[in-house]
Design a protein around this nucleic acid. Sequence first.
DNA 1: TATAAAATGACAACATGTTGACACTATATA
DNA 2: TATATAGTGTCAACATGTTGTCATTTTATA
Lengths: 147, 147
Amino acid sequence: MKHTTNGSLMTDIILETFKLNGLLVLEGDLLINDLGLTSARWKVLGALSNGPGPMTVSDIARMMGQSRQAVQRLSNEMIQAGLLETQPNPKHQRAKLMKLTGKGKRAYEQAMQKQIPWVNSIAENFKEKELKLVSSLLEKLISQLDS
Amino acid sequence: MKHTTNGSLMTDIILETFKLNGLLVLEGDLLINDLGLTSARWKVLGALSNGPGPMTVSDIARMMGQSRQAVQRLSNEMIQAGLLETQPNPKHQRAKLMKLTGKGKRAYEQAMQKQIPWVNSIAENFKEKELKLVSSLLEKLISQLDS
DNA sequence: TATAAAATGACAACATGTTGACACTATATA
DNA sequence: TATATAGTGTCAACATGTTGTCATTTTATA
């Protein structure tokens, strides 16, 4: 059995995704390491910042597409670091709600102030139409795999 | 400072790349775990299969865009597992050349026999033109970051 | 209501990746 | 040729992710 034309192109995209992911994590860490953040913590801050409000660890994990255990460990560390705090969850006795502290909010804002010029500069070499197409194709691919 | 239109779209693409990477690794592991392979080992087999011939660990690492130490550990394990073997390197006394064993070749072929129908099926929901555009944009993005 | 099923936090084991440091080898250059 | 520079294997520490298991809590259902 052989790759179809599309299958071969999709294989290229998959390998590119692996490589790009590694590069992006490295760049992200580099961008914000002076803020006491890492790419992993940044993603948690982002989930809480862009989410509907305080969320449980499991909510955050589902939003990020990661295991709740991974997010749990990060969250615990981030509470120790003063970036997150818990508040009681009326819906669940054990699953406390996570929210950003003032320090967490400031860290996220500072991170975004670094990310914005960085990403704007990278993105200016592309056409808006192309970026839209890529984003929507990746989204479609994710929802196909995320079953 | 704010995101430009392109910067905002590129940020979406970055977050999608994180999520897609995780899903792809999981799917890959699932696809081939009955062959005694993992996504990580598969990538090494792929590098050697698609490369110009026997390569050093450092060569493979550069090709995969990963640290040589990570590839070294995988390679050592894969030699133990009989998937790879070394041969002397006339160019370098310590940096031996890595090549696939018969078992390694068969494992890679079996993996591809699983990957091909899987990726063909996923890819048939997309247009060739779009896939080409996505692949080339990702490639361009990688080369921008890979400095 | 009683009980089965699902969700959650905690802990452990493991896989995969990074970086740093060290000794050794190969290569470029003064 | 002598020496600085770069590449390489090895080892260690660590970050980030997975899965499995267990006890507990919540939710769904018979």
